[in-house]
Design a protein around this nucleic acid. Structure first.
Length: 116
DNA sequence: CGGCTGACTTACC
DNA sequence: CGGTAAGCCAGCC
């Protein structure tokens, strides 16, 4: 069955798919890049409701302070930590060092995305 | 139609 | 570092 997403959700998904492996981004950052400043929660909604078929790198998305969106020790958190570890991102005390692994898209990347 | 919720964030104390 | 408050808004009841 086909999923009908509104335009905002489409943009968010596109933006999420821009996150390169080995990097992480925050909900707010994604909302900004998707052209939806202040709508971090919408990003969360999309992630929660998006079908797995989209193969979204949800595990590369964290809170603004680098902490996982899930509570430490939860099943989801552990799965996320596992996947991040696979890409070389280390999670310490349920948090990631945004300075080291945070995604810093270049202006060129953003412009390229806008063209698509 | 109104209220509540939440994979959020920033500011302030 | 923890607690409150306010802003945000789609989706569910």
């Amino acid at each position: 069955m086909k999923q009908y997403l509104n335009q905002n959700q489409q943009k968010i998904i596109q933006t999420i798919q821009q996150i390169p492996a080995g990097c992480v981004a925050s909900y707010g950052q994604l909302a900004d890049l998707a052209g939806l400043p202040g709508r971090a929660r919408l990003v969360g909604k999309v992630l929660r409701s998006a079908p797995d078929d989209l193969k979204l790198p949800w595990y590369r998305i964290l809170r603004a302070n680098g902490a996982l969106a899930f509570s430490a020790g939860s099943e989801q958190a552990m799965r996320q930590i596992d996947r991040l570890a696979d890409e070389g991102v280390e999670v310490i005390r349920n948090k990631v060092d945004m300075k080291t692994y945070g995604w810093q898209p270049s202006l060129a990347d953003i412009l390229f995305k806008l063209e698509q």
